[in-house]
Design a protein around this nucleic acid. Structure first.
Lengths: 192, 192
DNA sequence: GAATGTCGTTGACTTGGATCAACAAATCAT
DNA sequence: ATGATTTGTTGATCCAAGTCAACGACATTC
Protein backbone atom coordinates (compact mmCIF):
# COMPACT_ATOMS: atom_id res chain seq x y z
CA UNK A 1 0.00 0.00 0.00
CA UNK A 2 0.98 3.61 -0.64
CA UNK A 3 0.92 4.49 3.02
CA UNK A 4 3.48 1.77 3.76
CA UNK A 5 5.82 2.96 1.04
CA UNK A 6 5.81 6.53 2.33
CA UNK A 7 6.01 5.42 5.97
CA UNK A 8 9.06 3.27 5.27
CA UNK A 9 10.68 6.12 3.40
CA UNK A 10 10.10 8.65 6.17
CA UNK A 11 11.41 6.23 8.78
CA UNK A 12 14.75 6.30 7.01
CA UNK A 13 15.01 9.93 8.18
CA UNK A 14 13.22 10.00 11.54
CA UNK A 15 11.83 7.54 14.10
CA UNK A 16 8.04 7.86 14.37
CA UNK A 17 5.13 5.63 15.16
CA UNK A 18 2.63 4.63 12.56
CA UNK A 19 -0.04 6.65 14.40
CA UNK A 20 1.94 9.87 14.36
CA UNK A 21 2.59 9.33 10.69
CA UNK A 22 -1.01 8.79 9.71
CA UNK A 23 -1.98 12.38 10.40
CA UNK A 24 0.75 13.54 8.01
CA UNK A 25 -0.17 10.96 5.37
CA UNK A 26 -3.76 12.18 5.32
CA UNK A 27 -2.59 15.55 4.04
CA UNK A 28 -1.45 13.94 0.80
CA UNK A 29 -3.61 13.31 -2.20
CA UNK A 30 -2.77 11.17 -5.22
CA UNK A 31 -2.10 12.81 -8.58
CA UNK A 32 -1.86 10.90 -11.84
CA UNK A 33 0.12 12.21 -14.80
CA UNK A 34 0.07 10.88 -18.35
CA UNK A 35 3.34 10.59 -20.24
CA UNK A 36 4.31 14.06 -21.45
CA UNK A 37 2.15 15.99 -18.99
CA UNK A 38 3.58 18.69 -16.72
CA UNK A 39 3.28 18.81 -12.94
CA UNK A 40 4.59 22.36 -12.75
CA UNK A 41 6.00 24.87 -15.21
CA UNK A 42 8.44 27.77 -15.19
CA UNK A 43 6.97 31.17 -14.35
CA UNK A 44 4.48 29.88 -11.80
CA UNK A 45 4.58 28.84 -8.16
CA UNK A 46 4.20 25.05 -7.95
CA UNK A 47 1.12 23.95 -6.02
CA UNK A 48 2.55 20.79 -4.49
CA UNK A 49 5.47 19.12 -2.91
CA UNK A 50 5.31 15.53 -4.16
CA UNK A 51 6.51 12.02 -3.57
CA UNK A 52 6.89 9.74 -6.58
CA UNK A 53 5.10 6.42 -6.18
CA UNK A 54 5.33 5.29 -9.77
CA UNK A 55 6.93 6.57 -12.94
CA UNK A 56 9.79 8.76 -14.03
CA UNK A 57 9.97 12.52 -14.52
CA UNK A 58 12.45 15.09 -15.78
CA UNK A 59 12.97 18.55 -14.33
CA UNK A 60 14.47 21.12 -16.68
CA UNK A 61 14.84 24.83 -17.27
CA UNK A 62 15.32 26.94 -20.38
CA UNK A 63 18.67 28.67 -20.67
CA UNK A 64 19.41 32.09 -22.16
CA UNK A 65 19.78 30.57 -25.66
CA UNK A 66 16.35 28.98 -25.34
CA UNK A 67 17.72 25.46 -24.96
CA UNK A 68 16.30 22.94 -22.51
CA UNK A 69 18.71 21.95 -19.74
CA UNK A 70 17.74 18.93 -17.69
CA UNK A 71 18.50 19.45 -14.02
CA UNK A 72 17.33 16.15 -12.60
CA UNK A 73 15.44 12.91 -13.19
CA UNK A 74 13.10 11.51 -10.55
CA UNK A 75 12.12 7.87 -10.18
CA UNK A 76 10.15 5.89 -7.60
CA UNK A 77 10.51 7.03 -3.97
CA UNK A 78 11.92 10.43 -4.82
CA UNK A 79 10.68 13.77 -3.51
CA UNK A 80 10.18 16.44 -6.07
CA UNK A 81 9.18 20.08 -5.75
CA UNK A 82 10.43 23.60 -5.54
CA UNK A 83 10.19 24.24 -1.82
CA UNK A 84 11.99 27.56 -1.93
CA UNK A 85 9.58 28.79 -4.58
CA UNK A 86 6.56 27.61 -2.56
CA UNK A 87 7.78 29.19 0.67
CA UNK A 88 8.64 32.55 -0.87
CA UNK A 89 5.78 32.50 -3.40
CA UNK A 90 8.27 33.44 -6.13
CA UNK A 91 7.76 31.58 -9.42
CA UNK A 92 10.14 28.73 -10.14
CA UNK A 93 12.15 28.53 -13.34
CA UNK A 94 11.88 24.75 -13.50
CA UNK A 95 9.51 22.56 -15.47
CA UNK A 96 8.56 19.09 -14.30
CA UNK A 97 7.41 16.70 -16.99
CA UNK A 98 6.35 13.05 -16.80
CA UNK A 99 8.45 10.79 -19.02
CA UNK A 100 6.05 7.92 -18.29
CA UNK A 101 2.58 7.66 -16.78
CA UNK A 102 3.15 8.68 -13.17
CA UNK A 103 1.52 8.38 -9.79
CA UNK A 104 2.44 10.96 -7.18
CA UNK A 105 1.45 11.74 -3.59
CA UNK A 106 1.07 15.48 -3.23
CA UNK A 107 0.83 17.94 -0.38
CA UNK A 108 0.04 21.64 -0.83
CA UNK A 109 2.42 24.36 0.27
CA UNK A 110 -0.04 25.60 2.90
CA UNK A 111 -0.57 22.15 4.38
CA UNK A 112 3.15 21.60 4.45
CA UNK A 113 3.77 24.94 6.20
CA UNK A 114 1.28 23.90 8.87
CA UNK A 115 2.57 20.36 9.15
CA UNK A 116 6.05 21.67 9.76
CA UNK A 117 4.88 22.91 13.15
CA UNK A 118 4.79 19.28 14.24
CA UNK A 119 8.26 18.61 15.67
CA UNK A 120 8.99 15.33 13.90
CA UNK A 121 7.92 16.75 10.55
CA UNK A 122 10.10 19.77 11.01
CA UNK A 123 12.89 17.43 12.00
CA UNK A 124 12.36 15.32 8.91
CA UNK A 125 12.19 18.36 6.65
CA UNK A 126 15.40 19.75 8.07
CA UNK A 127 17.33 16.54 7.78
CA UNK A 128 16.08 15.99 4.28
CA UNK A 129 17.04 19.51 3.34
CA UNK A 130 20.56 19.01 4.72
CA UNK A 131 21.03 15.81 2.84
CA UNK A 132 19.62 17.31 -0.38
CA UNK A 133 22.08 20.10 0.05
CA UNK A 134 24.98 17.70 0.35
CA UNK A 135 23.93 15.68 -2.66
CA UNK A 136 23.35 18.69 -4.90
CA UNK A 137 26.81 19.91 -3.91
CA UNK A 138 28.36 16.58 -4.73
CA UNK A 139 26.57 16.48 -8.06
CA UNK A 140 27.62 19.98 -8.93
CA UNK A 141 31.22 19.11 -8.07
CA UNK A 142 31.24 16.02 -10.20
CA UNK A 143 29.95 17.80 -13.26
CA UNK A 144 32.52 20.51 -12.81
CA UNK A 145 35.46 18.13 -12.99
CA UNK A 146 34.56 14.95 -14.87
CA UNK A 147 34.98 14.05 -18.54
CA UNK A 148 32.02 12.77 -20.60
CA UNK A 149 33.29 9.24 -20.19
CA UNK A 150 33.59 9.57 -16.43
CA UNK A 151 30.12 11.11 -16.26
CA UNK A 152 28.64 8.23 -18.22
CA UNK A 153 30.39 5.58 -16.14
CA UNK A 154 29.22 7.35 -13.01
CA UNK A 155 25.58 7.36 -14.01
CA UNK A 156 25.87 3.79 -15.27
CA UNK A 157 27.05 2.77 -11.82
CA UNK A 158 24.86 5.02 -9.66
CA UNK A 159 21.59 5.07 -11.58
CA UNK A 160 21.56 2.15 -14.02
CA UNK A 161 17.75 2.08 -14.04
CA UNK A 162 17.68 5.55 -15.59
CA UNK A 163 19.53 4.33 -18.66
CA UNK A 164 16.87 1.69 -19.23
CA UNK A 165 13.86 3.98 -19.12
CA UNK A 166 15.06 7.43 -20.24
CA UNK A 167 15.87 8.25 -23.91
CA UNK A 168 19.60 8.66 -24.47
CA UNK A 169 19.42 12.21 -25.72
CA UNK A 170 17.87 13.22 -22.40
CA UNK A 171 20.69 11.49 -20.55
CA UNK A 172 23.19 13.35 -22.74
CA UNK A 173 21.45 16.64 -22.04
CA UNK A 174 21.48 15.89 -18.30
CA UNK A 175 25.23 15.19 -18.43
CA UNK A 176 25.81 18.40 -20.34
CA UNK A 177 27.10 16.69 -23.48
CA UNK A 178 25.78 16.14 -27.04
CA UNK A 179 23.81 13.06 -27.91
CA UNK A 180 26.42 12.21 -30.57
CA UNK A 181 29.17 12.37 -27.97
CA UNK A 182 27.25 10.12 -25.60
CA UNK A 183 26.70 7.64 -28.41
CA UNK A 184 30.44 7.56 -29.13
CA UNK A 185 31.33 7.26 -25.45
CA UNK A 186 28.98 4.31 -25.14
CA UNK A 187 30.56 2.54 -28.09
CA UNK A 188 34.05 3.11 -26.70
CA UNK A 189 33.06 1.90 -23.23
CA UNK A 190 31.33 -1.20 -24.67
CA UNK A 191 34.46 -2.15 -26.64
CA UNK A 192 36.70 -2.31 -23.56
CA UNK B 1 29.66 45.37 17.47
CA UNK B 2 29.71 41.72 16.44
CA UNK B 3 26.42 40.99 18.09
CA UNK B 4 24.72 43.66 15.98
CA UNK B 5 26.12 42.30 12.77
CA UNK B 6 24.87 38.81 13.46
CA UNK B 7 21.54 40.06 14.80
CA UNK B 8 20.91 42.10 11.68
CA UNK B 9 21.81 39.16 9.53
CA UNK B 10 19.51 36.75 11.33
CA UNK B 11 16.65 39.24 11.18
CA UNK B 12 16.80 39.01 7.40
CA UNK B 13 15.54 35.44 7.81
CA UNK B 14 13.28 35.55 10.87
CA UNK B 15 11.63 38.13 13.14
CA UNK B 16 13.01 37.91 16.67
CA UNK B 17 13.62 40.24 19.56
CA UNK B 18 17.06 41.20 20.68
CA UNK B 19 16.51 39.33 23.93
CA UNK B 20 15.60 36.07 22.26
CA UNK B 21 18.64 36.44 20.08
CA UNK B 22 21.09 37.03 22.89
CA UNK B 23 20.78 33.47 24.19
CA UNK B 24 21.73 32.18 20.75
CA UNK B 25 24.57 34.65 20.35
CA UNK B 26 26.15 33.53 23.61
CA UNK B 27 26.70 30.07 22.12
CA UNK B 28 29.17 31.53 19.64
CA UNK B 29 32.83 32.09 20.29
CA UNK B 30 35.24 34.08 18.13
CA UNK B 31 37.94 32.28 16.16
CA UNK B 32 40.82 34.04 14.45
CA UNK B 33 42.60 32.54 11.45
CA UNK B 34 45.85 33.72 9.91
CA UNK B 35 46.14 33.84 6.14
CA UNK B 36 46.75 30.31 4.90
CA UNK B 37 45.39 28.55 7.98
CA UNK B 38 42.66 25.92 7.78
CA UNK B 39 39.38 25.97 9.66
CA UNK B 40 38.55 22.39 8.72
CA UNK B 41 40.10 19.76 6.51
CA UNK B 42 38.96 16.79 4.44
CA UNK B 43 38.75 13.47 6.27
CA UNK B 44 37.56 14.93 9.55
CA UNK B 45 34.26 16.11 10.98
CA UNK B 46 34.32 19.94 11.27
CA UNK B 47 33.96 21.20 14.82
CA UNK B 48 32.02 24.37 14.07
CA UNK B 49 29.40 26.04 12.03
CA UNK B 50 30.67 29.57 11.49
CA UNK B 51 29.71 33.06 10.51
CA UNK B 52 32.34 35.20 8.77
CA UNK B 53 32.83 38.58 10.43
CA UNK B 54 36.02 39.55 8.62
CA UNK B 55 38.14 38.09 5.87
CA UNK B 56 37.81 35.77 2.92
CA UNK B 57 38.06 31.99 2.68
CA UNK B 58 38.06 29.30 0.03
CA UNK B 59 36.43 25.89 0.32
CA UNK B 60 37.84 23.18 -1.93
CA UNK B 61 38.12 19.45 -2.35
CA UNK B 62 40.67 17.20 -4.03
CA UNK B 63 39.43 15.36 -7.10
CA UNK B 64 40.39 11.87 -8.26
CA UNK B 65 43.40 13.21 -10.16
CA UNK B 66 44.65 14.92 -7.00
CA UNK B 67 43.79 18.42 -8.23
CA UNK B 68 42.26 21.07 -6.01
CA UNK B 69 38.75 22.12 -7.02
CA UNK B 70 37.39 25.25 -5.40
CA UNK B 71 33.75 24.86 -4.49
CA UNK B 72 33.05 28.26 -2.97
CA UNK B 73 34.49 31.52 -1.65
CA UNK B 74 33.16 33.09 1.54
CA UNK B 75 33.37 36.78 2.43
CA UNK B 76 31.94 38.90 5.23
CA UNK B 77 28.49 37.91 6.54
CA UNK B 78 28.55 34.44 5.04
CA UNK B 79 27.81 31.20 6.85
CA UNK B 80 30.27 28.45 6.32
CA UNK B 81 30.32 24.86 7.51
CA UNK B 82 29.49 21.30 6.61
CA UNK B 83 26.23 20.84 8.47
CA UNK B 84 25.48 17.48 6.93
CA UNK B 85 28.87 16.18 8.03
CA UNK B 86 28.39 17.53 11.56
CA UNK B 87 24.90 16.08 11.90
CA UNK B 88 25.83 12.62 10.62
CA UNK B 89 29.35 12.63 12.09
CA UNK B 90 30.72 11.52 8.74
CA UNK B 91 33.96 13.24 7.70
CA UNK B 92 33.65 15.99 5.12
CA UNK B 93 35.66 16.00 1.92
CA UNK B 94 36.01 19.77 1.92
CA UNK B 95 38.87 21.93 3.12
CA UNK B 96 38.30 25.48 4.34
CA UNK B 97 41.30 27.78 4.11
CA UNK B 98 41.68 31.46 5.00
CA UNK B 99 42.83 33.57 2.06
CA UNK B 100 43.28 36.54 4.41
CA UNK B 101 43.45 36.94 8.18
CA UNK B 102 39.92 36.06 9.27
CA UNK B 103 37.57 36.56 12.18
CA UNK B 104 34.75 34.06 12.59
CA UNK B 105 31.94 33.46 15.05
CA UNK B 106 31.67 29.74 15.71
CA UNK B 107 29.13 27.42 17.26
CA UNK B 108 29.79 23.74 17.93
CA UNK B 109 27.69 20.99 16.37
CA UNK B 110 26.36 19.94 19.78
CA UNK B 111 25.34 23.46 20.75
CA UNK B 112 23.67 23.90 17.39
CA UNK B 113 21.75 20.63 17.72
CA UNK B 114 20.44 21.84 21.06
CA UNK B 115 19.73 25.33 19.87
CA UNK B 116 17.64 23.98 17.03
CA UNK B 117 15.05 22.90 19.62
CA UNK B 118 14.20 26.58 19.99
CA UNK B 119 11.44 27.21 17.46
CA UNK B 120 12.80 30.40 15.91
CA UNK B 121 16.24 28.87 15.48
CA UNK B 122 14.81 25.83 13.81
CA UNK B 123 12.78 28.13 11.62
CA UNK B 124 15.86 30.13 10.71
CA UNK B 125 17.91 27.00 10.01
CA UNK B 126 15.23 25.56 7.78
CA UNK B 127 14.72 28.73 5.78
CA UNK B 128 18.43 29.16 5.38
CA UNK B 129 18.78 25.57 4.27
CA UNK B 130 16.04 26.04 1.65
CA UNK B 131 17.61 29.15 0.27
CA UNK B 132 21.08 27.57 0.24
CA UNK B 133 19.60 24.71 -1.68
CA UNK B 134 18.10 27.02 -4.27
CA UNK B 135 21.31 28.97 -4.73
CA UNK B 136 23.52 25.88 -5.05
CA UNK B 137 21.12 24.60 -7.67
CA UNK B 138 21.24 27.85 -9.57
CA UNK B 139 25.01 27.89 -9.40
CA UNK B 140 25.28 24.32 -10.57
CA UNK B 141 22.96 25.11 -13.48
CA UNK B 142 24.94 28.11 -14.56
CA UNK B 143 28.23 26.24 -14.65
CA UNK B 144 26.63 23.48 -16.65
CA UNK B 145 25.59 25.76 -19.48
CA UNK B 146 27.74 28.87 -19.61
CA UNK B 147 30.91 29.62 -21.60
CA UNK B 148 34.06 30.88 -19.85
CA UNK B 149 33.23 34.41 -20.95
CA UNK B 150 29.70 34.21 -19.59
CA UNK B 151 31.00 32.78 -16.33
CA UNK B 152 33.47 35.62 -15.96
CA UNK B 153 30.91 38.31 -16.74
CA UNK B 154 28.54 36.70 -14.27
CA UNK B 155 31.01 36.74 -11.42
CA UNK B 156 32.12 40.25 -12.36
CA UNK B 157 28.53 41.36 -11.98
CA UNK B 158 27.47 39.29 -8.99
CA UNK B 159 30.60 39.25 -6.85
CA UNK B 160 32.90 42.06 -7.99
CA UNK B 161 34.56 42.23 -4.58
CA UNK B 162 35.89 38.70 -5.03
CA UNK B 163 37.89 39.74 -8.08
CA UNK B 164 39.62 42.41 -6.02
CA UNK B 165 40.76 40.21 -3.16
CA UNK B 166 41.16 36.68 -4.57
CA UNK B 167 44.07 35.67 -6.84
CA UNK B 168 42.95 35.14 -10.43
CA UNK B 169 44.06 31.55 -10.66
CA UNK B 170 41.72 30.74 -7.78
CA UNK B 171 38.88 32.45 -9.62
CA UNK B 172 39.72 30.45 -12.74
CA UNK B 173 39.76 27.24 -10.72
CA UNK B 174 36.38 28.14 -9.19
CA UNK B 175 34.91 28.73 -12.65
CA UNK B 176 36.30 25.43 -13.86
CA UNK B 177 38.61 26.95 -16.47
CA UNK B 178 42.43 27.39 -16.81
CA UNK B 179 44.14 30.49 -15.54
CA UNK B 180 45.45 31.14 -19.07
CA UNK B 181 41.91 31.03 -20.42
CA UNK B 182 40.67 33.43 -17.77
CA UNK B 183 43.51 35.79 -18.58
CA UNK B 184 42.56 35.76 -22.27
CA UNK B 185 38.86 36.19 -21.51
CA UNK B 186 39.68 39.22 -19.37
CA UNK B 187 41.69 40.80 -22.13
CA UNK B 188 38.94 40.20 -24.66
CA UNK B 189 36.28 41.62 -22.35
CA UNK B 190 38.40 44.68 -21.52
CA UNK B 191 38.84 45.47 -25.22
CA UNK B 192 35.12 45.72 -25.87
C1' DG C 1 0.36 0.10 -44.50
C1' DA C 2 2.14 4.44 -45.88
C1' DA C 3 3.60 8.41 -43.76
C1' DT C 4 5.52 10.89 -40.11
C1' DG C 5 8.17 11.48 -36.12
C1' DT C 6 11.41 9.97 -32.57
C1' DC C 7 15.68 7.99 -31.51
C1' DG C 8 20.32 6.45 -31.99
C1' DT C 9 24.57 5.93 -34.90
C1' DT C 10 28.25 7.22 -37.87
C1' DG C 11 31.34 10.22 -40.74
C1' DA C 12 33.67 14.64 -41.93
C1' DC C 13 34.92 18.92 -40.40
C1' DT C 14 35.64 22.80 -37.13
C1' DT C 15 36.80 24.95 -33.00
C1' DG C 16 37.34 26.49 -28.20
C1' DG C 17 39.83 25.67 -24.53
C1' DA C 18 43.65 22.72 -22.55
C1' DT C 19 48.42 22.09 -22.56
C1' DC C 20 53.23 23.33 -22.71
C1' DA C 21 56.64 26.76 -22.33
C1' DA C 22 58.69 31.07 -21.59
C1' DC C 23 58.71 35.28 -19.39
C1' DA C 24 57.27 39.66 -16.84
C1' DA C 25 55.58 41.64 -12.66
C1' DA C 26 54.50 41.66 -8.05
C1' DT C 27 55.06 39.92 -3.33
C1' DC C 28 57.46 37.78 0.39
C1' DA C 29 61.22 36.32 3.37
C1' DT C 30 65.50 37.04 5.46
C1' DA D 1 68.25 45.08 -1.03
C1' DT D 2 68.14 40.57 -3.14
C1' DG D 3 66.89 36.21 -4.19
C1' DA D 4 62.82 33.12 -4.17
C1' DT D 5 58.12 32.30 -4.69
C1' DT D 6 53.68 33.52 -6.31
C1' DT D 7 50.93 35.47 -9.78
C1' DG D 8 49.53 36.89 -14.41
C1' DT D 9 50.33 37.23 -19.54
C1' DT D 10 51.29 35.69 -24.11
C1' DG D 11 52.39 32.50 -27.97
C1' DA D 12 52.31 27.95 -30.33
C1' DT D 13 50.32 23.55 -30.66
C1' DC D 14 46.97 19.86 -29.93
C1' DC D 15 42.86 17.43 -29.14
C1' DA D 16 38.28 16.35 -27.36
C1' DA D 17 33.92 17.54 -28.09
C1' DG D 18 30.75 20.40 -30.79
C1' DT D 19 28.55 20.96 -35.25
C1' DC D 20 26.47 19.58 -39.47
C1' DA D 21 24.55 16.15 -42.28
C1' DA D 22 22.94 11.72 -43.68
C1' DC D 23 20.85 7.38 -42.66
C1' DG D 24 18.62 3.26 -40.54
C1' DA D 25 15.60 1.28 -36.97
C1' DC D 26 11.55 1.68 -34.54
C1' DA D 27 7.05 3.59 -32.95
C1' DT D 28 2.96 6.11 -33.65
C1' DT D 29 -0.93 7.60 -36.04
C1' DC D 30 -4.41 8.35 -39.31
Amino acid sequence: MNIDILYTHICSYVQISRDEFEFFFNLFKPVYLKKGEFHYVAGKVPKYWSFTLKGCLREYWIDTEGDEKIFQFYEENAWVGQIQSMVTQKPTDMNLQALEDCELLCITGDDMCNAVKTPWIQNFTMHKSFSDNASIMENSNRIKSASPEELYLEILKERPSLLLRVPQHYIANFLGIRKETLSRVRRRVAHL
